[in-house]
Design a binder for these strands. Structure first.
Lengths: 144, 144
DNA sequence: GATGTTGTAATCTTCTTGATTACAACATCA
DNA sequence: TGATGTTGTAATCAAGAAGATTACAACATC
């Protein structure tokens, strides 16, 4: 099972705004071309990024811009914005283990803290990478 | 998007074998009761654990046993055994970004190493937790 | 008001997961 | 040897999630 592609699409969106934002209006249509993802999906992701305060969107005239400094946005911000981890966390528990069985009754209690540790390790690494780091590589590759 | 419940079910299976293996035969039927997961699914997970060398299964007579010392099995072993991460990795890329767009052409190159770092951080944490750690908590809770 | 864009609902397809049924293969024991 | 209980596995089904697509209202700008 994999983390949905919305996350990599979102980073792609930032890379496009960063690269093309100076010269042209970056619309959902344009982003759809670059990512090869449906423009409605792009608009949905943009909405989530906007709700998280990461981008600004011009309603009628169109075009998205980055709402913060590159060094003030990290990959965890983006991940949290687009992966609707509705309380569930990274790991999916089997629901309704037997209350009769002493193992079933306690499995949640046993695993919860350990899986939180794992998820936190992942999130810490995500938060250590900023868009500044990403765009450094984007600039290097795009301009060569 | 979440990691499938097969992983927590697999840990639950180990906890059952550890707890009940001495007194009774731990069959897929029994595990199905404790986990509240279909016995065929249990058998499938057991097969994967067996293929990874983590459990032994008695074919005709029935019953599963743990194939290694508890301290020699960690959560990453179990994760890799049951999450068929077929080369894909934790993150799902949007396929076919535009080759015409300089960003689309390079987004994979930009993100790959960073996402590998994130995945490695998660795997390192998973591998730091052994079944011995898990069973310590299981014993404490089950026997109280 | 014409135009281009965003916001959003509704529907459809595809994929994945897990549930379920069915049955062959196998080991054990009477 | 045959009855019994179990595993291995294929086939089918249902449910949920993700993304594609169509459609259209809301909005800003000219």
């Amino acid at each position: 099972m994999q983390i949905s592609s919305r996350f990599t699409v979102a980073v792609h969106i930032f890379a496009c705004i960063h690269t093309f934002g100076g010269e042209r209006k970056v619309t959902s249509e344009f982003l759809a071309m670059s990512t090869n993802v449906n423009p409605v999906i792009i608009r949905k992701i943009l909405s989530q990024l906007k709700a998280a305060g990461l981008v600004d969107i011009a309603r009628g005239s169109g075009g998205a811009t980055i709402a913060k400094q590159l060094c003030d946005i990290n990959l965890l911000d983006i991940y949290n914005a687009v992966e609707c981890v509705g309380g569930g966390g990274l790991f999916h528990f089997h629901e309704n283990p037997s209350e009769q069985c002493p193992v079933g009754r306690n499995i949640h209690r046993v695993l919860d803290d350990k899986l939180v540790r794992v998820q936190t390790a992942m999130e810490n690494e995500l938060s250590s990478i900023t868009l500044e780091d990403v765009m450094r590589d984007v600039d290097r590759l795009v301009k060569s």
